[in-house]
Design a protein around this nucleic acid. Structure first.
Lengths: 222, 222
DNA sequence: GCAAAAGTGTTCCAGATACACCCATGT
DNA sequence: ACATGGGTGTATCTGGAACACTTTTGC
């Protein structure tokens, strides 16, 4: 059955739920499987943990392979290990989730055409294995964390407007927020700095640009 | 080196951080190791996941073996997999934490003398492997969860007084709370029912006994 | 001059905090 | 009668929510 496995030892993999914001939607990255089982179905990026590789490093590597990116926010999510979740043999999957600023994704990150794609969370195709559950748990965690941390800043590019930041919150929470209250609150966090630049963007008043004070740092608030 | 392991497949274990409240302290359960490595040191209960056993089931079993208990609150915590965390061979450990009401622990749960013990969190002995880190992460999670869930009720026996419940909060948070505010808040949760019994307990007014409305259920609040 | 997004403060309300005294019992 | 923990209500504070108009630009 399994290639080189004694039945007594499950295989270990990491999977990564990669979130980004595109086209005014919260999307995640899927790869198309090229082998059985679930051949040609969409799945979360992931793969075997190497013999001497830390779990975090394995997730980082999977992220790097599928997106070309490193240095983005990455956090362990949950470990899935039900017998039978892989039809071939027992596999324990340590799931992570990552947040990437859209601007850093120049290419559609196709190692070959149609092998990867970004899908809106509410329009996911059927997923291989228990990956739909992983994606669900990741989304839950992200939404929850939005409320009590500065995690949303991880989606922002180097410079951004407050309207753009508000949009990020609105997309993830899936509700409209009050502009004045939002600005008051987000400025009170003391995690963004005003620059002296503005962005001209259509026939209306230019927007002031801001910058994250401590990029890569996620603070617990409230 | 390793007994029956191909270097390509790490071993999988679960470990459980078992919390209880005793002698007005938050304590956790440790077992003394009888074999190398770390022979005679204290460690978290745990052991290998069986070939066809779900991770949750493995943790439940370890809990049952070390405490004789089942049906208590148990939640996956984090997965530890750094190479070298076990000196013999690569081991991935899925850590859980559990909360047990003290009353359910009649025996000191000794399968043999001195093999297990309860230790206050601020008086832990040196622990084997990376178990000190596990315990730390578990305590953090527990404290955090106290603030936004009804998890503290999991420590309560069948019937309890509000003073006892307040004591639980004070021990875990490590700060004094206002009696009137505490009672107002905890009653507003609508998760405890007044019984018509009282407990006579020394030379003072008897305390009303309460009961958890939905035992085993932990609600997210606020 | 008009359309379109940027920007700005104040009032109101609810939930958290601070706080002190009487009650029922055992000795 | 006194020591001990059980039990109760109100005033205040604070942070969140609601809410509308002016500004700057491109066309």
């Amino acid at each position: 059955m399994a290639k080189n496995a004694p039945a007594s030892r499950p295989a270990i993999t990491t999977n990564v739920v990669v979130f980004t914001l595109r086209d005014d939607k919260l999307k995640l990255l899927l790869v198309r499987r090229r082998k059985d089982p679930f051949k040609d179905m969409w799945a979360l990026p992931g793969g075997a943990v190497r013999p001497n590789e830390d779990l975090d490093d394995s997730a980082k590597r999977e992220l790097e392979v599928s997106t070309g990116l490193s240095g983005v926010y990455l956090e362990q999510l949950y470990t899935f290990g039900a017998p039978g979740r892989d039809p071939r043999e027992r596999v324990i999957s340590v799931a992570y989730y990552a947040l990437v600023p859209t601007e850093r994704l120049h290419l559609p990150t196709a190692s070959d055409t149609q092998a990867v794609g970004w899908f809106a969370l509410d329009e996911l195709p059927a997923l291989a294995f228990d990956h739909a559950e992983m994606a669900g748990v990741a989304h839950q965690r992200l939404s929850a964390k939005l409320a009590y941390s500065t995690i949303a800043l991880q989606f922002m590019p180097e410079k951004f407007t407050l309207s753009e930041l508000q949009n990020v919150y609105e997309l993830i929470l899936n509700e409209k927020l009050d502009k004045r209250n939002f600005r008051k609150r987000v400025r009170a966090l003391d995690q963004i700095d005003q620059t002296d630049e503005v962005r001209r963007n259509g026939s209306h008043r230019p927007a002031r640009l801001y910058r994250v004070t401590n990029p890569g740092e996620v603070q617990i608030i409230r």
